[in-house]
Nucleic acid binder design. Structure first.
Length: 591
RNA sequence: GCCCCCAUCGUCUAGUGGACUAGGACGCAGCCCUUUCAAGGCUACGACCGGGGUUCGAAUCCCCGUGGGGGCACCA
């Protein structure tokens, strides 16, 4: 995998360089000096690769491409940035555009519940960043809260990722060089780092009991303080004294020593700098009395140990974002690029999805849980496309496969505002991607739904049926009403439905008889041979196509709505068609 | 209550000071195609939260409101 990097030659510098590990298409010594006014942004290494091959290295050529592609740039994954005349250097944001070293990203769910849309979206974006830079996507299980641990949740997470096609490079199940990938298996690591923090005077042991904390909180609330926070009793303890108490086996937690004054500036890639006054922050607990870390410590330690370059997590973490930045700075580590995609709102746009909304969605054939979506007949392609666009601004051509997303995705196009879930859009994308599937693939995916519905499915018939139902499916289980009758020996039409509009039972029976005669006289039941004589019959009879074909449809398929009639009859076969027609006629005559 | 985040069609969004008569997609409505249902094609409807600035010029920059969301645990 290639790695490219571009960087400003320094503040106020006027030169931009690209270099990469894959020097064979970089000119000369592997460096290329840009026209100072322009720099390139690469959505992906391969997009860059392509452009590089196409264009000669003259500044004019770059210029031309840049002007022309302003709009098309998004789709090509390449965009030229023209620096304003008074700007001579790139800012951090712009530099990060250019930085496409292999990224290491991670999904860090806690095995406490089900794998839902927000998890899936974070996984997708993380996966995309990793893949387009030739990096790794990691799954880390954050199971430090053992009280909330749900057995089997880990498996659901991995299975869901697998189903979506977002297979991690490293995980508790896939292994890797930076494991273990389960936090409960990393206790000693956190203890080691907590100790370092105490040594650096950025953390301290706290012996306050839950009861005292509770009382303290109540007092503060009674005083109507702006911010209820730890009063610092143990922070003022003499370190040696504290160490003695720890050694004596007294119960304690470890707290972060938050500065009482000043501000913390944290940089989110989507929102820019977020400045928080430290007095609104707290001496958060890093290590619990059970010896396990809280998220604040474990996530920072693991992201560092696992060499994570881009931290993608829900915007719910924004309030504690400054804390996390402080912890990392206290250690003296490099910060990753922080990306907080907006939260997902319920379809009404009012609030996060709740249990009640989830139940309502289920009743409607929808769900926010990935493992439900599978059973509901949704395809990974459709689901992926759907979630991708909640928070990723794509100007045009928003139907994409995973590979196309890898080409086009950029963390720079993520949107900061909360997005409401829209299940209609899921249906749209699902139907669209179903239509994009090959016949063989669609047949393969539809089969289990038919089989589960009790149909005895043979592959030859299914392969013939699939093209007929393809553009009618929103979900895969829609194949049951549309294709089920192909796999039944007989059908039981509703007698009422057999009577054509404007006609009575007698007349309808007569039409069935004539149709029978015509079809029986044919050499075969292919739609090419069957349709013309039937059309001719419609013409000469003075009846409408609607009436005649309607009777035929109900008789042959047993239902008023079906795939195209003659193609369906071809699949069902002459003998069977005639049999069903005969039965319909008898039924009509008995009315 | 306090802190933080956000603000363009009903929804997802494009938009980075003039190319904006604000573009696309979903949905909705109509038309075309059509044996049903779809799919497809075309057309319509539809938005810059409000008020102040800055500027020759603001959807875009700043401030103040308002509205929405999130967070205030030995949960993540």
């Amino acid at each position: 995998m290639s790695a490219y990097r571009a960087k400003s030659a320094g503040r106020g510098g006027d030169e931009y360089r690209l270099w990469g590990s894959d020097a064979d298409f970089l000119p000369g010594d592997g460096q290329y000096q840009h026209e100072p006014k322009y720099c390139a942004r690469f959505g992906s290494a391969s997009a860059f690769h392509q452009l590089w091959r196409q264009r000669p290295h003259s500044p004019d050529a770059w210029h031309r491409v840049g002007r022309k592609c302003r709009h098309a740039a998004q789709t090509a994954g390449i965009l030229r940035i023209r620096l304003p005349d008074n700007q001579t250097s790139l800012n951090d944001r712009e530099i990060s555009f250019l930085d496409i070293r292999p990224a290491r990203t991670r999904l860090a769910p806690s095995p406490t519940g089900r794998f839902h849309l927000a998890n899936a979206r974070n996984a997708l974006y993380s996966y995309l960043v990793a893949r387009q830079t030739g990096g790794q996507f990691i799954l880390r299980v954050e199971d430090t809260d053992q009280r909330r641990f749900v057995p089997g949740a880990e498996e659901v997470i991995v299975l869901s990722l697998e189903w979506l096609g977002l297979t991690p490079n490293e995980s508790p199940f896939h292994g890797g060089q930076h494991g273990p990938y389960r936090q409960t298996e990393r206790r000693e690591i956190y203890q080691h780092y907590a100790k370092i923090l105490i040594e650096k005077d950025s953390a301290y042991p706290c012996f306050c009991t839950p009861e005292r904390l509770d009382q303290m909180r109540k007092e503060q609330e009674a005083r109507k303080v702006d911010r209820v926070r730890y009063d610092g009793l143990c922070r003022r303890l003499d370190p040696e004294n504290a160490a003695r108490r720890v050694a004596s086996g007294e119960k304690y937690v470890i707290r972060f020593k938050m500065p009482y004054e000043g501000t913390t500036t944290a940089h989110d890639h989507i929102r820019g700098n977020i400045v928080t006054e430290n007095r609104y922050l707290d001496d958060y607990i890093l290590m619990r009395s059970d010896g396990l870390p809280t998220y604040h410590l474990s996530a920072m330690v693991d992201d560092h140990e696992m060499k994570i370059t881009h931290v993608l997590r829900s915007a719910e973490w924004l309030p504690t974002f400054p804390l996390h930045v402080q912890i990392i700075r206290a250690f003296g580590w490099d910060e990753p690029i922080w990306i907080h995609p907006s939260i997902l709102l319920k379809p009404s746009g009012k609030g996060k999805m709740s249990k009640r909304d989830t139940a309502a969605a289920m009743k409607d054939g929808h769900s926010i849980f990935v493992d439900d979506l599978d059973g509901l007949g949704y395809t990974p392609e459709g689901v992926l496309n759907w979630i991708a666009l909640m928070g990723w601004g794509v100007a045009e051509d928003d139907v994409m496969t995973l590979d196309e997303m890898i080409e086009r995705f950029s963390i720079d196009n993520l949107t900061p505002s909360p997005a409401a879930i829209n299940f209609q859009k899921l249906d749209h994308f699902n139907g669209t991607h179903i239509r994009l599937l090959t016949t063989e693939e669609l047949a393969r995916r539809v089969k289990p739904f038919l089989t589960n519905a009790g149909f005895d499915v043979d592959d030859d018939t299914l392969l013939k049926v699939t093209p007929l139902i393809r553009e009618r499916l929103v979900t895969l289980d829609d194949s049951i009403p549309f294709a089920g009758f192909f796999f039944k020996g007989t059908v039981e039409p509703n007698p009422e439905d057999l009577i054509a509009k404007g006609l009575d039972a007698r007349q309808s029976a007569e039409i069935a008889r004539k149709a029978y005669d015509i079809l029986a006289s044919l050499p075969d039941m292919s739609h090419q041979t069957a349709e013309p004589p039937m059309r001719e019959f419609v013409e000469t009879s003075g009846l409408s196509a609607n009436q005649v074909f309607g009777i035929l449809r109900v008789a042959v398929t047993g239902q008023k709505v079906s795939p195209p009639l003659f193609e369906s009859m071809e699949v069902i076969g002459k003998e069977n068609v005639l049999e069903r027609l005969q039965k319909a006629r008898t039924l009509l005559e008995s009315l």
